[in-house]
Structure formats: C-alpha cells, structure tokens
Design a protein around this nucleic acid. Structure first.
Lengths: 131, 131
DNA sequence: GTGGGTGCAAATACTTTGCAACCGA
DNA sequence: TCGGTTGCAAAGTATTTGCACCCAC
C-alpha cells in the first residue's frame, strides 16, 4: 500500500466515527459528514473507510444490508435488533471463548473473532408491549 | 406467509445444499442446479433460498461479498480464509459461550449466535510455505 | 513537481421484484 | 379452478472504479 497522505476528509470521517456510540453505515457517514464537507462524494467516503480499515483504525462489520463501521477496535461483539435494525455493543467478557478460539487455530492463525447476537432490543420490546 | 406448495426446483436446491460440505453462494447454487434445470433463473434460486431460510431448513451466512447458504442448521461457527475466501465449519463446543450469551440477554431475546473466525486455511498456508 | 486524494459519474456486484404463463393441490 | 411458483427482465441497493483536477509533501 502506498504511503498515506493527510486528508481533511479522512480525519473528519475518523473523528466522526469516534464520536458515535452506534455503528453507522457508509451512507450515514456520508449524510452526516456533508454538514462539514458539503461537496464530499460517497465514493470518497467509501475509499476512506476502506483505508481506515486497512490501517486498523476502524473495524468493518458485515451484516445483513449495508456494512457498518466502528471506531472501537478493542475486541467486542454486537447485538442486532430484528425489529429496528439497530446495532449495539455487547461488552461481555471474551475469556470464555478461549477454548473455542484454540480449536480454531487448527484452521489457521486467528486474528480476530466476533459474535453476532440477534433479538429484540429493549426499546422495541417496550413499544411492542404498549401496542 | 402463505402455505408452501411443493416445487421440484426447491427440493433440488435443498438436496444440493445438503450434499455440500462447504457453504455455496446463491450464484454457485444457480450454476450447479442448472445441470438439472437448465432453464431455472437466478431469481428463482434466490426466492427459494429465502423461503428455505424462513422455514428454518437452511441458514444464511452474511459475510464479505455474497451471502452463503448452509443446510447444517445445528449451532456451529465458521472460519473464513483471508486468502482463498473458503468458508469452513468450526465444530467447537458452544457451552463455553453460555456466560456471554447470558450477558446478551440484557439487550433482548437471544435466538441465535455465531462466531466468525478469520485466518489462513491450512491449504493456503501450505501453498505460501512452498512459494 | 509528484503522487496520493477528491468529486463526479459510470460501472459493477449482489439481490429483489413485477409480470404473464405455469403447475400442484 | 385457485393460488403459489417459475422464467425473464428490469429495477433496486450497496460498493467500486476511471478520470481529470486538486492539494499535501
């Protein structure tokens, strides 16, 4: 990969992601970053998100629909609401996974793992109960 | 969902998936199933894969690139090779995850979970070592 | 000045959908 | 017959890429 050169757009995207607790899609990033860079293009957003993933500054989370991006690079897992589609962090300990991960070494070097949980988030559950 | 009616195409797709150890994409299913149904369309393959997922007969695995489909519905995890893109099963025990899953209940009903492992598969590792 | 970065638009990859004909119950 | 299913093609969604111009180094 060629040497990275500074870009205000990339810095802004990085800062934006760091400021979010949830996990925006490329399109959400695009929509919000345009308040600062009205002429930025979606292509530039995708290009910079890919670069940031390559340098390890952010993580890409592939799930149903659009990919999501996360500036929290410490190991953690995610919960997806089947109803509203929100994606939340699951900050459970991963030590319990140690034995499973050891098994996986049989297939090669494990550089990362993640668990996806699915269900109904507490907000949607409340709405459902009121209906 | 309306009552399902029998279809030879759907049965064939189901049988095909059951016969595979790996996890084909919709396009791989399409290519192979055409040997039996030369006129089947990609749309029909997608429609039937979705139906089979809805009825719980197969699982959909969303990852980078195209979705993959798996007739093995018992809980297990997957390993993806960063080099060749192959997807393998990880048959490690999931009991170790119990505590983590309990944590996740805070966010809603957990109906399923899966771990994704990434690395280099043994076949690619061998090729790399020879080079 | 040079090479990476940007905006724009076109292209690509994957998946869904509208429709008329078809087929299983 | 009735309503689910099919093949075909067009549309939809998400992401990547070619290109000319711009800017950091």
């Amino acid at each position: 990969m060629a040497a990275l050169k500074y870009s205000r757009q990339r810095e802004s995207i990085k800062n934006y992601l760091c400021s979010r607790e949830d996990h925006p899609t490329a399109d959400m990033v695009y929509t919000d970053i345009r308040r600062e860079f009205p002429n930025i293009s979606l292509g530039t957003v995708y290009r910079n998100l890919s670069l940031l993933v390559e340098t390890g500054e952010i993580r890409k989370i592939t799930m149903d629909g659009a990919d999501r991006f996360d500036a929290k690079t410490t190991p953690h897992h995610h919960f997806t609401c089947r109803k509203c589609g929100c994606v939340l962090d699951v900050m459970a300990p991963v030590e319990n996974l140690a034995e499973t991960v050891d098994e996986a070494w049989e297939y090669g070097d494990v550089e990362g793992c993640r668990i996806e949980f699915y269900g109904i988030c507490s907000r949607c559950k409340k709405i459902l109960n009121e209906a």
